[in-house]
Amino acid sequence: MKRLALVFRNQTEGKSLRINIPEPIENIDSAELETDAQSLIDNGLVPAGYVFDEARVIETNTNVVLDLIQ
């Protein structure tokens, strides 16, 4: 599974907020991403006092080792 994690930070309180977006597009334009993240802040979807800090593409794999009840 692949997801895009947008990280916002509140430097005053030392807290962070992460928004995960499943299955992001392959070629992410960093300038557009910054604009979109700022739109989340401007439209009140991210609490006041937080600023956009970073974006990460995270990939995870799950391997079932044991499944007793099927």
Rank of each mutant, 00 (worst) to 15 (best):
I58S: 07
K2W: 03
S16M: 12
N27M: 10
E59M: 09
N61Y: 07
L6M: 09
L68Y: 09
Q70I: 05
A55H: 11
T60I: 10
A5C: 07
S39T: 13
L6T: 11
V65N: 11
E23W: 07
G14T: 04
T62C: 09
E23F: 11
E23M: 13
L66W: 01
E13K: 13
A48H: 06
S16Q: 15
S39M: 09
I28R: 07
A48C: 05
V65P: 03
R56D: 13
A31F: 14
Q11A: 13
V7T: 14
S30K: 14
E59K: 12
L4M: 14
S39L: 06
D36H: 00
T12N: 11
E26I: 10
A5M: 10
F8L: 06
I28M: 11
L40D: 00
Y50I: 01
S39V: 09
I19L: 14
T12D: 14
E32R: 09
A31M: 14
T62R: 08
V57D: 00
V7I: 13
V46R: 03
R9E: 00
F52S: 01
D67H: 07
R18C: 12
V51Q: 14
V64D: 12
R9N: 03
A48G: 03
P22M: 08
R9K: 14
E32S: 15
V64H: 11
N43G: 00
E13S: 13
G14S: 07
T35P: 00
A5R: 00
Q38E: 14
L66C: 01
I21S: 08
T35N: 08
P24T: 03
L4C: 02
I28N: 06
I19K: 02
A48V: 05
E59S: 08
D36L: 12
D67C: 06
G49I: 08
I19T: 09
F8T: 03
L68M: 12
D42H: 05
L6A: 08
E13P: 03
